[in-house]
C-alpha cells in the first residue's frame, strides 16, 4: 500500500518522497515507541532492562565472571559487535572454575521474545515453564534487554 501512496504523492508534485517499506511491523519489532489506543498495555520492550551485562565469544570467562560479580545480575548475554545475541551465560556457567573462553561454556541460541509482546502475555506463557527471566531481542536478533519475571 505504501508504494502506491508514495507514487501518488509524487504525482501530486512532491519531490522528496520516501517509502518506509517495512512499516509498522518493523518499527514495533525493533521495540521503538508507538502511539495509539492499542499501545496502553506494557510491552516487553518497555520494561526490558538494557543494563544486563554482555560479553563477547572470545572473552576469557574469568574476566567476564569478575565483571558480572560487580553487578547484581546472575546472567550475562553473549553478543557480537552488532549486538546480535549469540548465547547466554547462566548461573552454572558463571560459577565455572576452568580457564576457558565464553564460547566454550555458553548456552547456544537462547529463547527470546519480541519487544512488542505484552508483559502480561509473556508472564502467562513463561512463568508456568519456570522461567525467571526473558531475553528481549529485535526481529533481527539485536539485544534489547532482559526482563526478570519473578520480581
Amino acid at each position: 500500500m505504501s508504494p502506491r501512496a508514495a507514487w501518488r504523492l509524487e504525482a501530486l508534485g512532491f519531490s522528496h518522497v520516501y517509502d518506509y517499506v517495512a512499516g509498522k511491523v518493523d518499527w514495533g519489532a525493533a521495540g521503538l515507541p508507538r502511539e495509539g489506543t492499542a499501545t496502553t498495555e506494557e510491552t516487553m520492550g518497555e520494561v526490558a532492562d538494557a543494563n544486563v551485562p554482555t560479553c563477547r565469544l572470545a572473552e576469557r570467562l574469568r574476566d567476564v565472571q569478575e565483571r558480572v560479580r560487580a553487578t547484581d545480575w546472575d546472567t550475562c548475554i553473549v553478543v557480537n559487535e552488532e549486538q546480535v545475541v549469540l548465547g547466554r551465560l547462566g548461573r552454572k556457567a558463571l560459577a565455572e572454575t576452568a580457564d576457558v573462553i565464553v564460547e566454550e561454556v555458553m548456552a547456544e541460541g537462547p529463547s527470546t521474545v519480541r519487544p512488542t509482546a505484552t508483559l502480561r502475555e509473556t508472564l502467562e506463557r513463561l512463568r508456568p515453564k519456570g522461567n525467571t527471566t526473558a531475553l528481549v531481542t529485535t526481529s533481527d536478533g539485536r539485544l534489547v534487554g532482559v526482563v526478570c519475571l519473578d520480581r
Binding site: 500500500m1 505504501s2 501512496a5 508514495a6 504523492l9 508534485g13 512532491f14 519531490s15 522528496h16 518522497v17 520516501y18 517509502d19 518506509y20 517499506v21 517495512a22 512499516g23 509498522k24 511491523v25 518493523d26 518499527w27
Partner: peptide, 13 residues
C-alpha cells in the same frame, strides 16, 4: 511540499 515526506503502512504488503 518543501519538506520530505515518508509514507508507511503495515509492512511490505
Amino acid at each position: 511540499r518543501t519538506r520530505p515526506v515518508i509514507v508507511y503502512c503495515y509492512d511490505t504488503t
